[in-house]
């Protein structure tokens, strides 16, 4: 993606919409789908990703002049792993139940391509505060898509939102929404809708693959 836009407002728009990591760049899908069956899991997971993307971007931007170019990928991975370990320990201590639900997916934030991608594409060449902002907004773009998938899955799969029953008791839950395939269908539909709207607005559409 182009990083010519250096204004905070433009960065926000790019990361949340025109270059959204999920449906425009097809990054970070791995963890995106597994945690979207319940809203509360998704919320915690995406907050973790926002934190890690923001902080690792900030850290990479601060120490980028100290990192030899050849080993920068390794150093970035270690920085990301450091923040992920913090998230993991905090979750275990304060939210043990959600930590159990999320299982290995917290650890898998390390291999989430969004974080590495932002560190490499943005933080390497921009000042620290702007990088922090870029990381946070990228994380929020990810959060927006995931929360909308989780909203549909929890509402139709369990008739509930954040664990509270909202649909009447006679509601027949859609079993498919609890199972993995629904996540693929929903993300496909979101990608379709997002790209369709962008075509309509005449935005330059980046091909994500």
């Amino acid at each position: 993606m182009s990083d010519s836009a250096k204004q905070p407002g433009q960065i926000l728009k790019q990361n949340m919409w025109t270059a959204n990591p999920i449906f425009m760049q097809i990054l970070g899908i791995c963890s995106a789908l597994a945690v979207t069956n319940l809203l509360s899991n998704t919320m915690i997971m995406t907050l973790g990703v926002v934190f890690v993307t923001g902080m690792s971007n900030l850290t990479v931007a601060i120490i980028k002049s100290l990192i030899p170019r050849k080993v920068r990928m390794v150093v970035q991975t270690l920085i990301i792993a450091f923040y992920v370990i913090i998230v993991d320990i905090v979750l275990r201590a304060y939210l043990p139940e959600i930590s159990r639900n999320l299982g290995p997916y917290v650890g898998l934030i390390i291999t989430n391509c969004i974080i590495m991608g932002r560190a490499e594409a943005f933080a390497q060449s921009n000042p620290p505060l702007l990088s922090l902002w870029d990381g946070i907004t990228s994380g929020m773009g990810y959060m927006g898509v995931l929360l909308s998938i989780a909203l549909v899955r929890e509402l139709l799969g369990f008739g509930a939102l954040f664990g509270f029953q909202v649909l009447p008791a006679g509601f027949e839950p859609w079993i498919i929404m609890v199972m993995p395939p629904s996540a693929f269908f929903l993300i496909g539909v979101i990608t379709w809708g997002g790209k369709y709207l962008m075509h309509r607005q005449g935005e330059p559409v980046l091909e994500g693959e």
């Binding site: 496909g188 990608t191 809708g193 790209k195 369709y196 075509h199 091909e207 693959e209």
Partner: peptide, 8 residues
């Protein structure tokens, strides 16, 4: 449809 092509 154009929006569906590729990733979708």
């Amino acid at each position: 449809s154009a929006g569906l092509q590729g990733a979708g």
